[in-house]
Amino acid sequence: MTENFKILAEFIKDISSETPNIESYIYVKKNISKYQLNIDINSKPLKNKMIEVNTTLKFEDKEYNETKSYFEIIYASVVKIDESVKDKKELEKIILCDVQNKIYPNLEKAFLNLLHNSGYPEIKLDKKIDFTELYKQKSN
């Protein structure tokens, strides 16, 4: 099957690592297993069948406490949609699934670099995000 979109550009739009003090750093080092990865995808139309897709990864402690760190990356992709794509569902699948599957290796690498360079070299993202499965769940 030929692709009905083309990624024209990918870049880090915003990146953030916040560890306010040494107490937070030590606490997070011990409790990093409580942290959860959240993903959010939004898009905005540009001209000429192009769309800016912003994929946000956040890695944070769900429990409220004073001593915590916060990590976030917003990864932007500029996508040109083929003229043949007319259906809203098809466009949604391209944005939420197909584009994500293509950009995720670069996004994950950039995000892991952020975490490692923030003093947490032992962090690995064990579970690969299955965008196809997430899209199917959302559609049902």
Score class of each variant (00 low, 15 high):
residue 6 K to C: 00
residue 40 D to E: 14
residue 83 E to F: 06
residue 84 S to Q: 13
residue 46 L to K: 12
residue 49 K to Q: 14
residue 46 L to N: 09
residue 86 K to C: 04
residue 32 I to Q: 03
residue 81 I to N: 06
residue 125 L to P: 10
residue 78 V to S: 02
residue 101 N to H: 05
residue 84 S to M: 05
residue 83 E to D: 15
residue 40 D to A: 14
residue 57 L to Q: 05
residue 5 F to E: 07
residue 47 K to H: 07
residue 69 S to F: 02
residue 7 I to E: 08
residue 112 L to Q: 08
residue 37 L to S: 06
residue 25 Y to R: 13
residue 44 K to Y: 08
residue 108 E to W: 01
residue 136 K to C: 04
residue 100 Q to C: 15
residue 136 K to A: 15
residue 42 N to Y: 11
residue 72 E to V: 04
residue 20 P to C: 10
residue 103 I to K: 08
residue 16 S to F: 02
residue 5 F to C: 07
residue 21 N to Q: 05
residue 4 N to H: 10
residue 29 K to S: 12
residue 135 Y to D: 02
residue 114 L to W: 04
residue 70 Y to D: 14
residue 10 E to Y: 00
residue 67 T to Q: 13
residue 124 K to Q: 05
residue 121 P to V: 09
residue 54 N to D: 10
residue 48 N to I: 02
residue 42 N to D: 14
residue 136 K to D: 14
residue 95 I to Y: 07
residue 74 I to C: 11
residue 129 I to E: 02
residue 49 K to M: 09
residue 57 L to R: 07
residue 14 D to H: 11
residue 23 E to D: 10
residue 122 E to G: 05
residue 103 I to H: 08
residue 1 M to Y: 05
residue 64 Y to L: 06
residue 34 K to H: 12
residue 80 K to H: 13
residue 48 N to M: 06
residue 110 A to K: 08
residue 43 S to P: 01
residue 10 E to W: 00
residue 135 Y to I: 03
residue 83 E to T: 10
residue 44 K to S: 12
residue 50 M to R: 14
residue 86 K to M: 07
residue 139 S to I: 06
residue 102 K to I: 12
residue 88 K to W: 00
residue 48 N to H: 10
residue 86 K to E: 14
residue 6 K to V: 02
residue 115 L to P: 07
residue 59 F to V: 08
residue 40 D to M: 06
residue 10 E to T: 15
residue 48 N to W: 01
residue 99 V to Y: 08
residue 67 T to A: 12
residue 82 D to K: 03
residue 118 S to L: 05
residue 77 S to A: 15
residue 136 K to I: 13
residue 34 K to F: 06
residue 23 E to S: 07
residue 94 I to M: 08
residue 130 D to E: 04
residue 29 K to P: 01
residue 100 Q to P: 01
residue 63 E to H: 02
residue 45 P to D: 15
residue 50 M to Q: 15
residue 86 K to P: 01
residue 113 N to R: 12
residue 87 D to I: 09
residue 93 K to T: 06
residue 111 F to R: 04
residue 53 V to K: 08
residue 80 K to T: 00
residue 127 K to C: 03
residue 27 Y to N: 15
residue 15 I to E: 09
residue 26 I to H: 08
residue 103 I to P: 09
residue 34 K to M: 07
residue 50 M to W: 00
residue 133 E to P: 00
residue 122 E to H: 04
residue 23 E to K: 09
residue 28 V to H: 03
residue 108 E to G: 03
residue 112 L to I: 15
residue 111 F to G: 03
residue 38 N to Q: 14
residue 25 Y to D: 05
residue 19 T to G: 05
